[in-house]
Design a protein around this nucleic acid. Structure first.
Lengths: 379, 379
DNA sequence: TGAAGGTGTGAATCAGAGC
DNA sequence: GGCTCTGATTCACACCTTC
C-alpha cells in the first residue's frame, strides 16, 4: 500500500450511505483492521406478539426495535435467517477484499446472530484466531426467570486467511495491560453508561447499542499500530472513531443514518488526538471470586444429603442438590436457613454451618477457601 | 411417555456404534435432555483422524491409510466445512426428533466448530435460549504468544422450537445454587484434572477432552428432573452418565469407540446412585399449589372488611367476603384492583397488598405461604 | 457534606393454565 | 388454536433526593 493511495481513502471521515455500497468504492487491501458491530436480528416482534417486556415493577424495557435490526419483513424465521445470511456474507466479502494481508477482522454479536456470522466468516475464507467473550459487569437481568442472565457478548477475531501468519498482534502490550499475565479470551468490562453514554437533548440514549470505549481500546491497542487505518462499517455513534483518534489511528466510518453520523461527528471532534492516557476502566480490578455454596456441592466437595451442624450442634441441616439447606420445615440458602433457625435477621452461613470430619466439626468455609485458591488464578 | 415405552429405551446403558444410526433406533419424543460434546477435529485433521471421517453416504471411513491421506485430493477447507455441516445436521436432526416437547438441547464446542453447530441448531428449528460460556479457571496458555489464552468454551442451550415455552428449567434451584442471585451466562469452573481425570494404565489421559463433572452437574440440576432420561450421543468416558446417576437421572450413552465405552462403564459402575430425598431442589412458585385469595378469607386469616394497603400507603382497599377488593369505584380480584389503582397493565396482588400488624405492613403473601405450608405437610 | 435511601435503566429472541 | 384469566419476576450502577 503506497502512501499515495492511502490519501485516496476517506480517512477520518464518516461516509453516509449503505455500507456495502460504500465498501465497494474502497480499494483492495487498503485497511489494517475492520471492526464491525452489525445488527443482531433480534426478532422481537414487539408489535405483533406478547407486547413489551416489563420489569417486575411494571416499567417498560426500552429494547431494540429499530428498523435496521429487522430482516425478512416479518415473514418466517427461516426467511429471516436467510436474508440475514445474505446480508452478512455481502458485507464480510467486501471487508475481506478491503483488508490488507496483515490486517484482521473483529465482529461482535450475541447468540441471536453470532453463530451465523461466525459460519459466514469461516466460509468466506477468514481464519479464526480466537473468539473473545465480553463479560458484562452489569448486565440486564432476565426478568421473567425463564433463562440465564444474558451476561456476555461474543467477539470473533479472524485473519484474512489460513496461510496469513503475519497479522498484527501486540502481544506484549496486552500482557502489560493485564498485569503481566497473558491476556485471556474472556474480558470483564462494564456496559456503556454514565458520562460515556451519549444522550439526546431529551435525555434519551442516542443509540440503543453504544459499545464501551474500553472494549475498542483493547482491540485497537492489541491489533493495530499508530497510523493504521481502521474501518467500521456499522459506525453508529462512532465509538471506533473516538478510540482510534485518541490512540493515533485513522478511521473510516460507514453509517447510513444521518442522525447517528451527526452525533458521531460531534463526539469525535471533541476527542483529543494522541491523548494516550489509559482508560480508567480498562484494567479490571482483581477481586476475590465470589463462591456460592452451590458450587461446593456442584464440585462434589459436599454431597447432597450431607448433614451440617452449627458449632454447638443445636441444629442439623441437610444439604440438597442445589446447595439449599433443609431444617424441619424451612428451606433456603445457607445464610437464610442459618438466620431462620436462630431467629436472627442475618447470618453468615459459611462460618455458621459445619460438616463433620473424623468426629470434629469443620466450618464449610474450609471448602470456600479451597475453591478460591483454585479459581483465584483466573481472577 | 408411558412407563412401557420408557422401558423400551436402553436406559443407563452405553450403546456401541455410530451415534446417528443408534439415534435412528430411538422413538420420537422419548428423552428429556440431550447433552452433546461433538467432535470437531474431523474438519481440522482430515487424513490423520480418518477414523472420524465419513463418506458422502455417511458410512464411516475406517482405514487409517485411506485415500484421504493424500495431498490434493480435493480436501479443501470448504469441503471439510461442508462435510462437517452434513454430519452436524444429521445428528442434530435426530436429536430434535427424539426430544420430548419439554426437553432441551445442550451442545458444547469451541470456536473451531461452535459457530457451525449454532447455525445448524437454528436452521433445524431449535430456538436458542442462551449461549453459556464455560470460563476455565486454569486454561492452557498460548505458548507462541500469537493469540489470546483460549480460556473458555461455548455451550448452546436450545428448546425444541420457538413456540415451546415449557422447557424444563429449575430457575430457583440455580438461583439458590448461586447464593440467591440469578445465574448468569458465564460459568467459572476449573478444567477436569486431579483424581477426576481418568487415566489409562500407562498414566496417559484416557480421553483428550474429558469434561468436568461440575459442568454437567449444573446443566442436569438446572434442566432436568429426577427420573428424567438424558441422552449423550458422544458419550466418551461418560461424564454425563456419571453425573446423571449421581443425581438420580437415567442416561443413554452412545459411543463408537469400545475403549472409551469400557472406561465409561467402569467409571459409572463406581458411582453411588444418590438417595433421592436430597436430590429435590428449590421449587418455583409456579409449581407450588395455587392458593386463591378467597381461601385466605374463607379460612378466617383475614376478615371481610379488613383494610389492605400498598407498601407506601398510597391506596387503601377493603376486603369483601368473597375475597374481592374495593377501592373507591373499583372492585375485583387482588390482582385486578392492584393493577387498576396503579394504572398498570398487570400486578401481582399477593406482593402488592399488605395488611397492618402492630403498625407494620406485611404482604398478604404471608398468609399464602402459611396455607401452602399446611397443604404441603398434608402430602 | 456525607450518608442513606429511592429511582431509573441496559442488544431481551422473557408465561402458562384452562376453557 | 385462540381467548381469557391468573400471577410470577430483577442485578449492578448511576444519579437524585432527603435527612
Amino acid at each position: 500500500m503506497s502512501r499515495e493511495s492511502k490519501t485516496d481513502l476517506p480517512l477520518d471521515r464518516i461516509v453516509l450511505g449503505d455500507c456495502i455500497e460504500s465498501m465497494r468504492a474502497l480499494p483492495d487491501k487498503s485497511v489494517d483492521l475492520v471492526f464491525a458491530d452489525p445488527p443482531y436480528n433480534l426478532m422481537l416482534d414487539k408489535g405483533t406478539r406478547a407486547g413489551q417486556l416489563r420489569r417486575p415493577d411494571q416499567s417498560v424495557v426500552d429494547g431494540v426495535d429499530d428498523e435496521w435490526d429487522r430482516f425478512g419483513n416479518g415473514t418466517s424465521i427461516a426467511e429471516s435467517y436467510a436474508e440475514y445470511d445474505r446480508f452478512t456474507r455481502e458485507w464480510l466479502f467486501e471487508a475481506r477484499r478491503i483488508l490488507k494481508d496483515t490486517g484482521a477482522l473483529w465482529v461482535i454479536g450475541s447468540y441471536h446472530n453470532i453463530f451465523r456470522v461466525g459460519t459466514a466468516v469461516q466460509d468466506l475464507g477468514f481464519w479464526m484466531l480466537n473468539d473473545v467473550i465480553w463479560r458484562k459487569a452489569n448486565p440486564m437481568p432476565n426478568f421473567r426467570g425463564r433463562r440465564f442472565t444474558n451476561a456476555h457478548e461474543t467477539l470473533i477475531w479472524a485473519a484474512r486467511n489460513e496461510a496469513q501468519k503475519t497479522y498484527t498482534f501486540n502481544y506484549d502490550a496486552l500482557k502489560t495491560m493485564n498485569d503481566d499475565l497473558q491476556m485471556r479470551s474472556d474480558w470483564l468490562l462494564p456496559i456503556c453508561g454514565g458520562n460515556e453514554r451519549l444522550k439526546g437533548d431529551d435525555g434519551a440514549k442516542a443509540h440503543p447499542t453504544q459499545k464501551p470505549e474500553a472494549l475498542l481500546y483493547r482491540i485497537i491497542v492489541g491489533c493495530s499500530h499508530p497510523g493504521d487505518v481502521i474501518l467500521d462499517p456499522f459506525f453508529g455513534t462512532g465509538t471506533t472513531g473516538a478510540v482510534a483518534k485518541r490512540l493515533g489511528r485513522h478511521f473510516i466510518g460507514l453509517e447510513r443514518d444521518p442522525a447517528y453520523a451527526a452525533v458521531a461527528s460531534q463526539r469525535i471532534a471533541a476527542v483529543e488526538s494522541g491523548d494516550m492516557a489509559p482508560l480508567s476502566v480498562t484494567k479490571s480490578k482483581r477481586e476475590e471470586p465470589r463462591i456460592p455454596f452451590g458450587q461446593v456441592v456442584e464440585r462434589g466437595l459436599i454431597q447432597p444429603g450431607t448433614k451440617l451442624f452449627d458449632q454447638r450442634r443445636r441444629w442439623v441441616a441437610r444439604v440438597r442438590a442445589d446447595g439449599s439447606l433443609v431444617v424441619n420445615d424451612a428451606t433456603g440458602s445457607i445464610h437464610r436457613v442459618g438466620a431462620h433457625v436462630q431467629g436472627a435477621p442475618a447470618c453468615n452461613g459459611w462460618t455458621f454451618w459445619h460438616f463433620e470430619h473424623q468426629g470434629n466439626l469443620v466450618p464449610i468455609d474450609f471448602y470456600r477457601s479451597r475453591l478460591r485458591a483454585e479459581l483465584g488464578a483466573s481472577h
